[in-house]
Design a protein around this nucleic acid. Structure first.
Length: 419
RNA sequence: CGGGGUGUAGUGUAACGGUUAACAUUCCUGUUUUGGGAACAGGCGACUCAGGGUUCGAAUCCCUGCACCCCGACCA
């Protein structure tokens, strides 16, 4: 991509109503735009990141047997009445809308009901289990108060997986696999070192659940964690009973603010019973599958990465989620400089590397400033100096200065850090 | 949903109840520049959120609405 053709532009200042670091940087760098409170549009750069994150999640879900599908966003009343989740007194963040014929429909805030209902058409025998359908879908939640940029929106993309198992053991085995998959996701997204599997309350479905909490002051939760053992417990259940049930012994626990970027929990047979989803075992007896639910808010993960890694100059993207792998800065728009930059640009693209080429007619300071703000991890500066030496000026986003590489070194480095 | 605050060019800010609503930046023209947000000159861009009211006169004061932000509660 040529930066001169990118329709988004950076800005020096964030709008005054944006207070959160994640949305300030993402708006300034041209990744997102706010439509209204809690509702953001994703621009070309932002969508690239969203798609990168989505693909990491997809790969990890597929790796543990997930099958992707896509349910409808519009939800019908009668189905949700079966599980007693239609009434606004029970679920207070529904968005509801009325059809021309007067029927009321809801915009899905979660999808346990429609998926369970869908499976009534496909699940017959114990041979059909276990199954792990999942989707990426826009969720609508009528939050009392949207806040913190893209960390808590009223409309957001979510990956939600649901597991259907024959028995508790089968469910537990998968639940553990899901934990590992999630751990892989956050490691690949560059925040593994500060994300903790956190023993937490199970809400209305089960006594306990597991949250993936990333340490950040921008978060809304408080957890107690132990960095050495990589364990944590949510403050809401950090009492003698919770500690005992979570298997905590006498670890030193540190209190910290954190954000819940994912949550997994067992649903038991609450939904399969209410919606009457059954299968027959080898003896021909009917049973309700044991269900589990595994969610990740995609924009929230994106915002959390910005919160965690961004510095005073801008965003710092980990390699796997960066909108581009390499940012080439052409110091001039004419002569040998732009020729050399174009040549490298094409060469890298031929090697399958995603490159953003800053070919704008702008001054060096502005280009470097924008590059820092946009946060692509690898930067190559093409100018007369290095061309004369036959070298490439290379800089990691978080390094303090450039290094001079020859072509082989450069390609080797990019190959090693490109994903 | 309770409490508090704020709405002025694309963005950030200013303007005692009193000129043609100012400054910076962005953007456009031109000249000179060209390795960490250049200099000069010129120019575009605002019914001051909406609707009422007070006043000789309202961006400014009052009322209503809407929107946004913050704190809290809530977050299946």
């Amino acid at each position: 991509m040529r930066q001169s053709q990118l329709f988004t532009k950076t800005r020096r200042e964030a709008p005054s109503d944006e207070v959160a670091k994640n949305s300030q940087l993402l708006i300034r760098a041209g990744f997102i735009q706010k439509m209204t409170a809690g509702v953001y549009s994703f621009l070309p750069l932002g969508l690239r990141v969203l798609n990168k994150i989505e693909n990491i999640i997809r790969e990890e879900m597929n790796a543990i047997g997930g099958q992707e599908l896509r349910l409808a966003a519009l939800q019908e009343k009668s189905l949700w009445e079966k599980t007693n989740r239609w009434d606004d007194a029970v679920v207070d963040n529904w968005f509801k809308t009325t059809l021309k014929n007067g029927n009321v429909m809801g915009l899905g805030f979660s999808h346990e009901e429609p998926l369970t209902d869908l499976l009534r058409d496909h699940l017959r025998s114990f041979r059909d289990l276990p199954i792990y359908p999942y989707q990426f879908q826009t969720k609508f939640r009528n939050e009392m108060r949207a806040k913190s940029g893209i960390l808590r929106g009223r409309e957001f993309l979510m990956k939600d997986m649901y597991s259907f198992s024959k028995n508790e053991k089968e469910h537990d085995d998968f639940y553990e696999k899901a934990k590992i998959a999630y751990t892989n996701i956050f490691r690949r997204a560059g925040i593994g070192d500060r994300t903790y599997i956190t023993f937490a309350s199970g809400g209305s479905f089960s006594k306990y659940s597991h949250e993936f909490q990333m340490l950040t002051d921008a978060g809304e939760d408080i957890i107690y964690y132990n960095a050495d053992k990589k364990i944590a417990i949510n403050k809401e259940i950090c009492n003698s009973e919770g500690l005992k049930d979570g298997g905590f012994t006498d670890e030193q626990l540190t209190e910290a603010k954190s954000i819940e970027i994912a949550n997994i929990f067992g649903l038991g047979t609450r939904f399969s019973e209410a919606i009457d989803l059954k299968y027959k075992d080898a003896e021909g007896t009917s049973h309700f599958p044991i269900m589990g639910c595994y969610g990740i808010g995609v924009p929230r993960l994106m915002g959390s990465i910005v919160e965690a890694l961004g510095d005073d100059k801008g965003i710092v993207w980990p390699a796997e989620v960066s909108p581009f792998a390499v940012h080439i800065i052409a110091m001039k728009t004419e002569g040998v400089v732009i020729e050399a930059a174009e040549k490298l640009y094409k060469e890298l693209i031929e090697r399958g590397i995603e490159v953003l080429l800053d070919d704008r007619d702008a001054r060096a300071g502005e280009k470097f400033g924008d590059a820092d703000l946009i946060g692509i991890p690898l930067r190559i500066t093409i100018g007369e100096k290095s061309i004369a030496e036959g070298k490439y000026e290379f800089k990691d986003r978080i390094a303090s200065k450039d290094e001079l590489f020859d072509k082989d070194q450069l390609m080797a480095y990019i190959g090693k850090h490109n994903v």
